[in-house]
Design a binder for these strands. Structure first.
Lengths: 327, 327
DNA sequence: TTGAAAGCGTTACCAC
DNA sequence: GTGGTAACGCTTTCAA
C-alpha cells in the first residue's frame, strides 16, 4: 500500500520534528503562526492526508458507523439507508455498509469485522437466516467490545440494544378491520416473508382480526401458483399482501382471474411508492416510512456515541395506509 | 474504543512473549505444537480477534475494496452492487460502500477517505455533479496513492483507469432502427438523465438514427408536463425513454391521452425487470444486465489487486432489448 | 523454539 | 515554541 506523504517525510523535508508538524497541522496553539504557515504550505503542496488507519488506531475512535442490511434490492432497506445517510451526513461520522443477502454467516462476518476496529457503532436489520436460527451471539460480541448496536425493523425482541420498530401487528390488524368495515367477508393473507419477525407480527395482526383465517405462503417464485390455485377454488373479496412480491402477485392473479378491483376483490399491500403508483390499478399500500425509520435509527446511535447514554430506547414508527385504487 | 483482548494481554496471561503468540496464532512453523495449542485455547477462550486496523496499518493491505455509487434507489446500481458482492464474497476481500447521492463533494470525500488507508482499490460510477463539472482530480489522488480504480457505467472517457461500460450509443441507435423498421415515423426521445454521460451517449444514438429529432428533457418532477404538452400537440408513434422515470412517464402520459399501446404509440424504455413486468401494459426495455457489469468490474479489480497488471482494460457489456407489450 | 525490538503513521505527554 | 519519546496492536527480522 502506498499512502500519501507522511509526517515523517514532511519532517525531513522541512527540517522540523514530527511532533511539531503534527501539532501545526492540528492548529495547536503551541506552534508559532510562521511555522504553522510553512508547514501547512508544504503539506498542501504534497497533498498530505492523515492516514485514517493510524489516527483510528491511536485514538480508539473510527468516526465510522457500520450499517448492516439484508438486501439492497428491497426498496424498504434502500429507503432506510437513505434516511440514515441523511442524518449521518450532517455529523462528522462516515458510513460503511455491508449487505448480508439474508445470510447469518455474512452477518456474523460483518459484525465481527466491523466490531474489530472498523467502526464505533452498528446499525442492523437482521438477516432472515439469523431470525430463523435465533442466533444473537455475534451481537453479544459487539456489545462486549463496547460497540453500541441499534436494530431496526427486523430485531431480536429480547436483545439488550436500542431498537426502532414498526407497529406491524397493529397496522395489519387495523387494515383488516377497515376491509371488514366496508363489508369484506373473505379476506385472505398472502406472504413470502413468513420467516421474518415482521412477517409473523403482521400475520398475527391479520389472524387476530379475522374469524376464519386463510394464510397463503410461499416464495416469490411459488406464491403465484399458490394464490392462483386458491382463488380459482374459493371466494375471496379481500387480500392483505405482506410484501412487495406478494402484492404484485395478488394484483396479477386477481387480474388474470378477471375479477374487478376493488369491487370484487380489494387489495392492500406493501410496495415502494413508485411501484404502487405505477401499477394498474394503483395499489393501496401500508407505507412504512423507511426514510423516517432510518433517520430515527441514526439519531439514536449518534446520540449514544456522543453522550454514551446507557438507557435503551425502543421507538416505534407509524405505518400509514395510503389509499389508492385497489381499496 | 474497546477492542477484543490483545496479544499483549494474552502474553501476560500465558507468560509467553507477544511475538510467540502472534506466530502461534498465525500457525508459524517456528512454534511448537504444544505451545500453539495452549495459545490457541487461551485465545479461543477470550475470543481473540486481531485488530483490523493494526493489521492493515502494519501490512499496508486492507483486504477491503471500496464501492462508490451515486444512488441506492436506482435499481441499476442495486443490481451492479449485487454482482460485485457475488464476486467479492468468493475472495478474501471485504466490501465497503459509499453512496454519493450524485454529489461531487461526497464523492471526493469518499475517494479521499477510502484512499487514505481504508481500501486497497476502488470501484466507482461517477456522480452526476462530477460528470457535469468534469472534475477528476480526486481520482488522480487515488491513483497516486496506488489505489487501482475501476469505473463502470458512468465513466470519464479519458481517465486512465479500467472501465466497464455499456454500448449505450449503439443500443439506442439499434432500438430506434427497429422502431423505424416497423413503420414508426415520429419517434421522440424522453430523458431525465441529460447530464449523465450515459444519457448523452444514448441521446446521440437516437439522434443519429432519426432524420428529425425531438428530445424532451426534464427532471423526474417536470418531465410529465413536458411530455404531456408535447404529445397533445404533435403526433408521436414511438417513444424511446432513457431512464426509469422517463419510462414511467411515457407510459402514464400515453395512457392518459388514450392512445393505444403499442398500436398508436410504441414505447421502449429503461426499468427494472420487476417494474417492467408489472406495468400495464408490460414495458419493453433495454436491459443493461447490471449484475454482469458488477461481476466484470469486480473481477477486473481483483485481478489488478492480485497480479498488479498495468494494462488498462475497457470492457463492454451488451444491453439487450427485452420485448414486452409496449413494442 | 522462543523472545526482543523495530516499525507502520499518528497523537500526546513531558522536557527543554 | 519546539522536539523526543512512548504508545495504539500488530508482524517480522534477528538474536539467543
Amino acid at each position: 500500500m502506498s499512502t500519501s506523504i507522511t509526517l515523517k517525510e514532511l519532517s525531513k523535508l522541512l527540517g522540523v520534528s514530527i511532533s511539531t508538524i503534527s501539532k501545526a497541522l492540528n492548529d495547536s496553539h503551541e506552534i508559532s503562526e510562521s511555522t504553522k504557515q510553512r508547514i501547512r504550505e508544504m503539506a498542501e503542496l504534497h497533498n498530505y492526508q492523515p492516514n485514517k488507519l493510524a489516527v483510528s488506531l491511536k485514538s480508539g475512535k473510527t468516526r465510522t458507523i457500520g450499517v448492516i442490511i439484508p438486501s439492497i434490492q428491497n426498496y424498504f432497506f434502500a429507503q432506510v439507508l437513505f434516511g440514515i445517510e441523511k442524518v449521518i451526513a450532517d455529523s462528522d461520522y462516515n458510513i460503511i455498509v455491508s449487505i448480508t443477502h439474508e445470510s447469518l454467516e455474512k452477518e456474523t462476518k460483518a459484525v465481527t469485522t466491523f466490531s474489530n476496529g472498523l467502526v464505533d457503532g452498528i446499525i442492523v436489520a437482521l438477516a432472515e437466516e439469523t431470525q430463523l436460527a435465533r442466533e444473537s451471539s455475534h451481537f453479544d460480541t459487539a456489545l462486549n467490545l463496547k460497540k453500541p448496536v441499534v436494530m431496526f425493523d427486523r430485531v431480536f425482541k429480547d436483545f439488550p440494544c436500542d431498537k426502532v420498530q414498526v407497529n406491524d401487528y397493529q397496522v395489519v390488524f387495523d387494515a383488516v378491520q377497515q376491509l371488514q368495515a366496508r363489508g369484506r367477508k373473505h379476506i385472505i393473507l398472502v406472504s413470502t416473508i413468513q420467516n421474518l419477525s415482521v412477517g409473523k407480527s403482521r400475520a398475527k395482526g391479520y389472524a387476530d382480526a379475522v374469524s376464519k383465517e386463510v394464510q397463503l405462503e410461499g416464495t416469490p417464485e411459488t406464491i403465484d401458483k399458490v394464490l392462483g390455485d386458491y382463488m380459482s377454488k374459493h371466494s375471496v373479496d379481500g387480500i392483505i399482501a405482506l410484501d412487495e412480491d406478494a402484492s404484485l402477485t395478488a394484483l396479477s392473479v386477481t387480474k388474470k382471474l378477471k375479477k374487478s378491483i376493488p369491487e370484487e376483490v380489494a387489495i392492500i399491500g406493501y410496495a415502494s411508492e413508485k411501484m404502487a403508483m405505477n401499477l394498474s390499478p394503483t395499489l393501496t399500500t401500508l407505507n412504512q416510512h423507511g426514510g423516517i425509520i432510518g433517520e430515527k435509527t441514526a439519531k439514536i446511535l449518534l446520540e449514544k456515541l456522543k453522550i454514551g447514554a446507557k438507557t435503551l430506547t425502543n421507538e416505534a414508527v407509524e405505518t400509514t395506509l395510503v389509499s389508492r385504487e385497489t381499496f
